[in-house]
Design a binder for these strands. Sequence first.
DNA 1: TTGACAAAACAGGACAACCGGTCTGTTTTA
DNA 2: TAAAACAGACCGGTTGTCCTGTTTTGTCAA
Lengths: 226, 226
Amino acid sequence: MIAQPKPRPGKRINDPEGMRKKVLDVAEDAFQARGYHASSIGDLMAAAGVSGGALHHHFPTKKALALAVIDERVAAAVEETWIAPVLAAASAREGVRAVFEAVAAQLEQQGFVRGCPLNNLAHELSLADPDFRIALAGIFAGWRRAIADKLHADQQVGKDEGTDPERFAALTVAAYSGAMSMAKATQDAGVLRDCLAGLERSAPSPSQGALAARRRNRILPRPGTP
Amino acid sequence: MIAQPKPRPGKRINDPEGMRKKVLDVAEDAFQARGYHASSIGDLMAAAGVSGGALHHHFPTKKALALAVIDERVAAAVEETWIAPVLAAASAREGVRAVFEAVAAQLEQQGFVRGCPLNNLAHELSLADPDFRIALAGIFAGWRRAIADKLHADQQVGKDEGTDPERFAALTVAAYSGAMSMAKATQDAGVLRDCLAGLERSAPSPSQGALAARRRNRILPRPGTP
DNA sequence: TTGACAAAACAGGACAACCGGTCTGTTTTA
DNA sequence: TAAAACAGACCGGTTGTCCTGTTTTGTCAA
């Protein structure tokens, strides 16, 4: 007999939080791999091992599920992959460089590119529903704000003056988003390095210790796809 | 009686090319506005006023229709919006600037943003099917090549040396793609101008006549949505 | 502690609408 | 007169949602 968690016939254990998390896990993965419309709730139920009634109890509609994925998972992915590393870096430019390189390295090691979760959903859902659009736009805004604030903090210490923080943040987010789009289409992460190199041409930096902030990134979910 | 084109009951005129064009028109528009999966062939038939048999005669499957849209329409849009204006400009940098500004201006005048057709479909279809991915990657490649070649030609005349053409092209395409992604999510084309400004910081340009190449762009299709 | 009881959590089937594709048949055209 | 072009019905499968039950769990008086 295989030792499964709790396949006992006569007993059942209610685990609302665990079940909700399990559904969000598979939904996040499916939306990232196949997109929103191409992921049926039947697929999600099967992948998560959740009954229709249970899923409907936690997420009344598919839209509600997607909104939860956006608010809780996509936002967290941006926070973990971009905002936290940039804030922890020695400077904004250094943080941006570290993230670009870390993501490129992981993608190359991984061997395939599924794209940026935020941009993937943004393209598919921004025009589909105002609620989707507002949620996604908010994540973009937070992303840009974090970078702009970091650069502004740098300038308070005399670093990197002469660069407009808002423009720098916009260009950084755009370059990364577009690079991931191309990387996904070409299945080649090299374009990330090209864009980073082009981006750093505009740096007035003299020279700084190149201590790469080694942080795990989370643009691409679980490597093991069962 | 309303004067319709040809609603005569007893007569019919075969117009293969016209019917094919009509289908591609509505498909291009629907894919841009709602995406591939959200556009049913029933919707397309109704919008184009085409029977199921006719549509199936020209495009046996939905995938075949999408591939035709990509090869004939999306590629043409990139050519018209980006490649031709850049090639016609005084320099690569000048062409890039002109396109960014022209697109931003049109979007602001239009009042809403539907995004870049290439990136819209790239995000939704790149992982869905290898044929889609290859077709889309090819358009990206042509786009980058045109910009890189233009910059290389500039350098043959001594202009803008010290800039790597491939990297410049990659960054330009990425910045535009990402900016359009954000513009779509925020429904605000201002980010295009922010990115352009950030992009031009890396220019070693002394000064050149700012003759804006005024060309119609075609990122967003027909303004009138019936 | 117990027992009652309402709410939450979960199971699983039912259903109408819709999807994309196919099929047969008719009309036009080379 | 055969092939191309078009019309329109048809079908099996899928979609998202709802619905009716059943089980578990928390609560609170006794």
